Amino acid sequence: MARFHTLRVAAVDRLTDDSVALTFAVPPELREAYRYTPGQHLALRRLVDGVEVRRTYSICAPAPVPGDDGPRTLRVGVRLVDGGAFSTYALKEVNLGDELEVMTPAGRFTLDPAPGLYAAVVGGSGITPVLSIVSTLLAREPEARFCLIRSDRTAASTMFLEEVADLKDRYPERLQLVTVLSREEQQAGLPSGRLDEERLTGLLPALLKVDEVAGWFLCGPYGLVQGAERALRGLGVPRTRIHEEIFHVDSEGAPRPQGSTPAHSTVTARLDGRGGTWPVQDGESLLDTVLRNRPDAPYACKGGVCGTCRAFLVSGEVRMDRNFALEPEETEAGYVLACQSHPATEKVELDFDR
């Protein structure tokens, strides 16, 4: 089960005018608990006017080497969101030595290093988990190659610019780097403009042999990720080779299905070895029902994006408003996002421990 622990801020590094990297020190007794796979994220929480606020940020550092005692530090990238309660705090108030509550690593947008060719299409802060994936892969697997296609507004707004450049210098033959700026012309490279489905359909086959890529990692705003997926599927890439993580969902996101909760609905949930059954209020998500009775239920974003609240549907039926976190294989196997799920039958049973 994911747990929160209080960690000390060991470094605060300004990346751009609107982004920062926070590094946390991990004490020896917690290092095994914070061992992570490249691509995973951390949830941070704090109280704002008496209300708990949680936000999820991806780890951007190489993963610890198997067999060691776990990470001594954890580094995440934070980009300012207009009106964001946590991102504003992170950029303007967090200082060296501060203590924050940090959840143990979670997420399935990951890659276990193996030989082969891999590729990513990322936009903006979507570089954060992919930076961990690329740096870990190239360091551990001498037979691995990676093609990184990144889109940013301008050079000045590009997160981890120096870190990616250092990787390119370290692995010039194994890392192919392609940068596209949507609002600024470059002296060399591709013309400016958005990376949409049409452009990617023509660009990707010109950069690499699409059918030889063992895994595609798409990360960033909803529109970019969906456009990249459609381009790849149109080029014949199997869905099983495409991995997605959405960072921002706005008006172009999927519509929310409508429906009422059946009368006298209950949810039975198993969590950390203990179970209980509780009534579901009309319009309430299953996660909110569980949280009213088990405050330790896992969640981070409540937006269907991070996947922290994933649970196995043991019995009954649910309707899920939106899903930007679970792979098709996971939903087919019976997993749902509790924060987006509402009962479609009077009795529903969830297992958070599976």
Score class of each variant (00 low, 15 high):
126 G>K: 14
67 G>Y: 05
199 R>W: 08
186 Q>W: 01
148 L>D: 10
330 E>T: 04
91 L>T: 05
175 L>K: 06
147 C>G: 02
61 A>F: 00
37 T>E: 14
188 A>D: 14
146 F>N: 07
280 V>N: 05
321 D>W: 05
87 S>L: 02
287 L>T: 02
194 R>P: 05
69 D>M: 00
53 V>T: 06
108 R>G: 01
211 D>L: 08
11 A>V: 02
147 C>V: 15
353 D>Y: 10
279 P>S: 10
248 H>W: 09
89 Y>W: 15
168 K>I: 00
252 E>Q: 15
251 S>K: 12
124 G>A: 10
308 T>I: 03
268 T>V: 04
184 E>V: 11
292 R>V: 01
340 Q>C: 12
226 Q>S: 06
102 V>M: 05
351 D>N: 10
232 L>W: 05
41 H>Y: 14
299 Y>P: 10
149 I>G: 08
101 E>N: 02
302 K>T: 12
18 D>A: 13
160 F>D: 07
123 G>M: 09
339 C>I: 10
112 D>T: 15
252 E>W: 03
68 D>P: 00
198 E>Y: 01
217 F>M: 15
16 T>I: 04
72 R>I: 00
152 D>S: 15
26 V>D: 09
77 G>K: 09
239 R>W: 00
318 V>Y: 08
55 R>V: 07
345 T>H: 12
307 G>M: 07
227 G>W: 08
69 D>N: 13
103 M>Y: 01
298 P>Y: 03
203 L>K: 03
124 G>M: 13
302 K>A: 08
17 D>N: 13
101 E>T: 04
53 V>F: 00
280 V>I: 14
328 P>A: 11
210 V>W: 04
331 T>R: 14
161 L>V: 06
309 C>K: 01
293 N>S: 11
3 R>L: 14
345 T>R: 14
49 D>F: 01
245 E>K: 09
149 I>T: 11
280 V>S: 06
260 S>H: 08
33 A>K: 07
63 A>F: 05
342 H>A: 11
148 L>K: 07
74 L>G: 01
226 Q>C: 03
7 L>V: 13
38 P>G: 04
247 F>R: 03
311 A>Q: 09
96 L>F: 08
178 V>M: 10
266 T>E: 15
237 V>I: 14
343 P>D: 12
196 D>A: 04
203 L>E: 06
305 V>C: 05
338 A>S: 15
105 P>H: 02
111 L>S: 06
28 P>R: 03
148 L>G: 10
264 H>W: 07
3 R>G: 00
201 T>C: 07
343 P>F: 12
116 G>R: 15
131 L>P: 01
251 S>R: 15
276 G>Q: 07
219 C>F: 05
98 D>Q: 02
99 E>D: 06
206 A>Y: 00
260 S>I: 01
34 Y>S: 07
261 T>S: 13
